[in-house]
């Protein structure tokens, strides 16, 4: 076991685990969106940038999901810098989010709502302007609907799909601001299996991937 200090508490963690998982197991919450419990520090995508913490001896804030615990490490999860960056990250995500919780299937089970509550920010995105993508729904998948303006691009759906199937059906598409999750017009035969798998639907932290209710026609 490794012994480290987090927020002035001495905590223990399994060797090789990440600072994020060590803190979470010890009951110290760090906001996170893109991390899967099985992720070793070297495999975590570190994409959402919400799990930033300050670690003594590090020059700048660092994503807790990619740092391996070490004996004697001192971690601060709630410094002013950390909170400022986390709030900015959350507001950036909200600035491209259609905040319409009432009509969203993820309402009350949504990771964004939870993190906003934890950070005490609400769901506004000031001072950033809201920029939404067009169209609001991508229905090219035979049975799934994808809502780009709900997606936080955590990449979890892409990863669980890849973990389950030899040939993943989901992947990132486009670049920069235009980046989305795409299904590359999935072959209907293969996609028929999607409803028996449902891995992506169940792991999406927001309501961005949903089973289509109206049949295409």
């Amino acid at each position: 076991m490794i012994t480290l200090t987090a927020d002035n508490r001495t905590i223990q963690a399994r060797e090789g685990s990440s600072v994020l998982s060590a803190c979470l197991s010890a009951g110290i919450y760090i906001p996170h969106l893109c991390w899967l419990e099985a992720d070793a520090p070297a495999d975590a995508p570190a994409a959402c940038r919400l799990c930033l913490v300050e670690i003594e001896g590090f020059r700048e804030p660092v994503a807790a999901c990619v740092v391996t615990v070490e004996n004697g490490m001192t971690v601060h999860t709630g410094t002013e810098t950390v909170r400022r960056l986390q709030k900015t990250a959350l507001k950036l995500l909200l600035s491209v989010h259609r905040v319409d919780c009432k009509h969203c299937p993820a309402n009350k089970a949504c990771a964004l709502q939870n993190i906003a509550k934890f950070l005490g920010t609400g769901l506004g995105c000031k001072p950033f302007e809201r920029v939404l993508k067009e169209p609001d729904v991508d229905s090219r998948h035979p049975v799934l609907d994808y809502y780009p303006n709900r997606c936080v691009l955590c990449g979890i759906c892409v990863r669980v799909c890849r973990q389950r199937h030899q040939r993943p059906l989901l992947s990132f598409a486009r670049r920069g601001f235009e980046t989305v999750v795409g299904c590359f017009d999935a072959d209907p035969v293969a996609a028929a299996d999607c409803m028996s798998c449902r891995a992506c639907l169940e792991s999406c932290p927001t309501g961005a991937l949903v089973q289509r209710t109206v049949v295409k026609g």
């Binding site: 994409a47 959402c48 940038r49 919400l50 950036l92 990449g155 990132f172 980046t179």
Partner: peptide, 8 residues
């Protein structure tokens, strides 16, 4: 497009 700060 991977990380929040750069993408948005």
């Amino acid at each position: 497009g991977k990380c929040t700060f750069c993408r948005i």
